[in-house]
């Protein structure tokens, strides 16, 4: 039996008159890694933020791990506790040490005691290579370290799925590799992941499936070798030409 972790149907989102998502259907199975690519303004970040209801969908159904998030009776906080999210701007809690960043939600949301929360936190910091930064304040870390701490913070909640919203877009180029390495290891361990990214190399090597979004809909999807290697749609080809060979791209009209 295939185990569907994320089931999205008829997802629409409008901001006032502006329709950002025009009907998205998508299923992500357990252990699947799905990368979402597309030009800016294509709705891919909004799509991801709808999956844990940071954006309230205008219409459609979102079921994560059997919980219908769009049902008003669903405890959204309990649901979110099982959906890890990693942000482009890291969003580490600036007033808390790295260790406290990892323990605060474990203790206040999951009700774990301090000892348990700290041992889970340290284990996850070890996973992302930051065990020696437990006592540091976030402001003292490099961008790459902050993002890895952000991933560890999400993992400390033992999530069923992980959402990544352009996790390397705010990083200096030489720091991108550390974060992608952590994500690759996570994928190898079988985590279900939905990743909005501009890192084509990562999508090609790690993703099971790639979605190309443009204009608020999924234009093309399939195995990375097909979507990135041999795109069928004109819009996909145009986008990839710009991303993969930016110095030869003609300015868009």
């Amino acid at each position: 039996m295939s185990d569907v972790k994320i089931d999205i149907s008829g997802l629409r989102k409008s901001f006032g008159q502006l329709e950002v998502l025009g009907g998205v259907d998508q299923r992500v199975e357990a252990g699947e890694v799905v990368c979402v690519i597309g030009p800016s303004g294509s709705g891919k970040s909004t799509f991801l933020r709808c999956v844990n209801l940071l954006e309230q969908p205008t219409a459609g159904r979102i079921v994560v791990d059997g919980m219908d998030l769009t049902d008003p009776d669903t405890d959204i906080d309990a649901a979110r506790a099982r959906i890890g999210m990693v942000f482009q701007q890291f969003n580490l809690f600036a007033h808390l040490s790295v260790l406290d960043n990892l323990t605060v939600a474990q203790r206040k949301v999951l009700g774990r005691d301090r000892a348990k929360a700290e041992s889970v936190a340290r284990e996850n910091l070890r996973k992302v290579g930051l065990e020696d930064k437990a006592g540091s304040m976030p402001g003292r870390l490099s961008g790459g370290q902050q993002q890895r701490a952000g991933i560890a913070r999400a993992l400390a909640m033992d999530p069923d799925v992980m959402l990544f919203d352009e996790p390397t877009s705010a990083l200096d180029p030489e720091l991108v590799g550390d974060v992608l390495g952590v994500m690759r290891r996570l994928a190898d361990e079988g985590m279900t992941m939905l990743v909005v990214t501009h890192e084509m190399q990562f999508a090609r090597e790690v993703a099971d499936r790639v979605l190309f979004m443009d204009g608020g809909t999924i234009v093309e999807q399939g195995a990375p070798a097909d979507v990135i290697g041999a795109p069928q749609q004109e819009r996909t080809r145009g986008f990839l030409a710009r991303v993969l060979d930016p110095t030869h791209a003609a300015p868009e009209d």
Partner: peptide, 8 residues
Amino acid sequence: EAARSLGM
């Protein structure tokens, strides 16, 4: 947003 995403 980060706090909400952790279930607070």
